[in-house]
Amino acid sequence: MRQSIDRRDFLKLAGLGGVVFASGLAGGAKFAGAAQDDFYFVQLSDTHWGFNGPVVNPDAGGTLPKAVAAVNSLEFEPDFIVFTGDLTHTTEDPKERRRRLAEFRDIVKGLKNKNVRFMPGEHDAALDNGQAWKEFFGPSFYSFDHKGVHFIAIDNVSDPAARIGEQQLAWLKSDLAKQAADARIVVFAHRPLFDLYPQWDWATRDGAQAIDLLMPHKNVTVFYGHIHQEHHQMTGHIAHHSAKSLIFPLPAPGSQPKRAPILWDPAQPYRGLGFRGVDAEVQKAEYEITEYPVRKA
């Protein structure tokens, strides 16, 4: 608790205070779980290692190392770090895919905090059903508990048709069955679980089934990537927060005819790129999100 309060005080003093999002139906209800320390974690997403497009990001090879350095320089150490997919940019060459995954893994070994969780994106996994990705990072969907919060990582990318699939949905149902109705649940995914903008493929074909399984739980928050920008939306009482990318930003959903990367602006390098810190206040089921740039202005 002490460290969390210190960190939030620090953020406010530094003018970095984040936005607080209440999870679900908390509304003052007393959490039945054991008293827990608050904590914070860092989410990075869509690093697309191996991407080559100078007009979009002339520092494609330098952005990820800069992000690693920026995480390492945070004033307070996170409890853990999660990468929510598209670690690498897609390639149809299996050897090149593995080379990119290996390079990515080696770069993020530079993170001081060694409690790092990984998830695949469709660029990593869709062309071989996640085979190469799993060789490097293990199972593509899993759950774990941390200080009173149940975290669930859902793989909605290894199927090139963007389905979670019957098998994983059955696992999700079984995993959730062990959780109390007021359990603090955080879901990580790459694609949005809801139909954010299917015209740009910003959806999961059977995502509604996952949301249906999550709905009986009062306190559910989803953190995802894929859309290369910050976005916040509710489906019922479930909050969904997408993260910025670490390679190029994309336009707001439906804001222009084509989903094309926003070009690099030499006057504002790294604009629209970044990562986030999430302060979890377990008792209130609140999450304070602080967005960090790749490089300080």
Partner: peptide, 18 residues
Amino acid sequence: TFVFLCDIFCGDGHEGMS
């Protein structure tokens, strides 16, 4: 005017297939 797109990831360039 309405968009149609490829919704099965088919390679590098899939995202422009519409």
